[in-house]
């Protein structure tokens, strides 16, 4: 049986039935394109992406369109309702709430994204090292467990209380607090990412193409960057989106407890904190920042859900 079929390799084997003859160059079907196609089908994810991009657009370009200074006092117009000039009303000192929300959005979002990037970087590095190098796995995972056992909110509050003044003196009030809060959130939220990345690295490491790379003689550093990292992108991306949500909520919580940004640099949490005292008279001061936070976090969570589903090979019709 097997002796009869013989193929001389100089002859070109025709392509598998069904695939087009290579006359015109075929559109590349990369993994990214497949994932994008699957993501588009996830209604929640798409809605979330639209909402999130709208918020970013508003926050970045809104102040130029709306043109009102958020710190301009206009006591005569205090506690005004919704009007064309003040789409969200004013606070007790006459400051325009909409302008404050836009300005606060810039701070909150930049803190959220930067803190997420920091925690992603730390988490991924630790996860990859722990997953790939067996000797490092023990100590690094114990370190992760240690950080996970720390009571975060109390410690965050304590650290901010301790170092707020020193940083403010060294770097100026705005940058100092920004750095402190970003650092503090980043240092305390990398553990989930590290655990997930380590799990993914452990499973990718066992696959045969990694063994093949070793048999070729590829150096370890290249194996990690060329083979391991591209294949653990999915949990990293999901962690990234969820990290933004966590960072924004944590920053808002800190501001709400009075230990975040000072009152001259509004963030959404700070606006909420300031508005609580005037809740009875002017509930809109509390509603708008809260809605802004909730909407942003909700949209980011939906995006994360969509990405997670799109990257799951079982759901993707393969």
């Amino acid at each position: 049986m097997i002796d009869q079929v013989s193929v001389a390799p100089e002859k070109v084997i025709p392509p598998a039935p069904g695939s087009p003859v290579a006359a015109e160059p075929r559109k590349q079907s990369t993994l990214t394109a497949d994932v994008w196609r699957q993501f588009r089908q996830h209604k929640g994810g798409v809605m979330g992406a639209i909402v999130f991009l709208t918020i970013i657009f508003l926050v970045v370009f809104g102040p130029y369109i709306h043109g009102v200074d958020p710190s301009a006092l206009n006591v005569r117009e205090r506690n005004a309702g919704i009007s064309l000039a003040h789409p969200m009303g004013t606070d007790n000192l006459g400051r325009d709430t909409f302008a404050q929300i836009l300005a606060g959005g810039r701070t909150s979002l930049s803190v959220g994204v930067t803190a997420m990037l920091l925690s992603l970087f730390v988490g991924t590095t630790i996860g990859v090292l722990a997953g790939y190098f067996k000797k490092l796995e023990g100590p690094l995972m114990r370190l992760t467990d240690l950080f996970l056992a720390l009571p975060l909110l109390p410690l965050l509050l304590v650290i901010i209380m301790l170092f707020r003044d020193t940083l403010r003196r060294s770097f100026g009030p705005e940058t100092g607090i920004f750095m402190l809060i970003v650092f503090v959130i980043g240092i305390t939220s990398w553990m989930q990412t590290a655990r997930i990345v380590r799990g993914a690295v452990l499973s990718v490491k066992e696959q045969e193409f990694v063994l093949a790379a070793k048999s070729i003689g590829t150096r370890e550093r290249r194996i990690i960057t060329r083979h391991i990292l591209p294949n653990v992108l999915s949990p990293i991306m999901v962690s990234a989106t969820l990290g933004i949500a966590t960072a924004i909520i944590t920053e808002s919580a800190l501001s709400f407890l009075g230990l975040g940004f000072p009152s001259d640099f509004p963030t959404w949490g700070r606006l909420l904190f300031d508005g609580v005292n005037f809740m009875q008279i002017n509930p809109s001061r509390v509603i708008w920042p809260g809605l802004a936070i909730s909407l942003t976090v909700l949209s980011v969570n939906y995006i994360g859900d969509g990405i997670r589903d799109a990257l799951d090979p079982r759901i993707r019709g393969r």
């Binding site: 929640g44 949500a245 909520i249 808002s252 919580a253 709400f256 949490g269 909420l272 609580v276 809740m279 009875q280 509930p283 509390v286 509603i287 809260g290 936070i293 909730s294 976090v297 909700l298 969570n301 939906y302 859900d305």
Partner: peptide, 22 residues
Amino acid sequence: SMVGFSVPTFFTGVVLIVVFSV
């Protein structure tokens, strides 16, 4: 559920106070 854990507790608390108490 998504709304429930996206909306921070301090906001829900405040909203509930506004609605049910005030």
